[in-house]
Design a protein around this nucleic acid. Sequence first.
DNA 1: CGACCGATCGTCT
DNA 2: GACGATCGGTCGA
Length: 207
Amino acid sequence: MKKLDSAFYQRKDVLKIARDLIGKVLITIHDGELTSGRIVETEAYAGVADRASHAYGGRRTSRTEIMFAPGGHAYVYLCYGIHHLFNVVTNTADIPHVVLVRALEPMEGIDVMYKRSGILKDPYGLTSGPGNLSRALGIRIEQSGTSLLSEHMFIAEDDYRPGKSAIITTPRIGVDSAGEAATWMYRFIHKNSPWVSARSVNRKYIR
DNA sequence: CGACCGATCGTCT
DNA sequence: GACGATCGGTCGA
């Protein structure tokens, strides 16, 4: 298991990075408790030209400031007042391209994840969906701005590599109001993974 | 299975 | 003061 370095994040093609993140492993270690999962769903948000992005049109506020940092930081924000959504900042300084991590297949620390998430009717609700995976891994908006080279939150790779045909591209979820950008094929999912988010595309079609 | 609804609060206008 | 890059529940077909 090898931690991804800043060169991985600072490449200039956010779509390539979003695709490359499928199969990588997201790890958090909070108070000595390690939780990890393999990334099976991502979405790219392409900055100032992307109406679905928080940085659309060059918007730059205290919340989104971290999006303009060099690649390799976490951008976490609160959605609907409830869910903490985890994004990976990419590219170089002042290019606010990010990748939203939308679903994981749990690996280590599943007991800790359940401790944080409580009892679930649907076991896939543990790390399927951006709000759910953040809850399971203990990711909160307080960690927005954290370096992904840190010891507490990072992404690593092992020997696993998804085959080229194992990755499916689709439009993004929940961005209907973004006009034409809502049709862009900026979402990447691992084919046949039951952990891909439920509301995204019907699970039955990709399982 | 699909459509709809309420929760809940930081952020931006 | 309005609005979400969501989620789990309910309701009806």
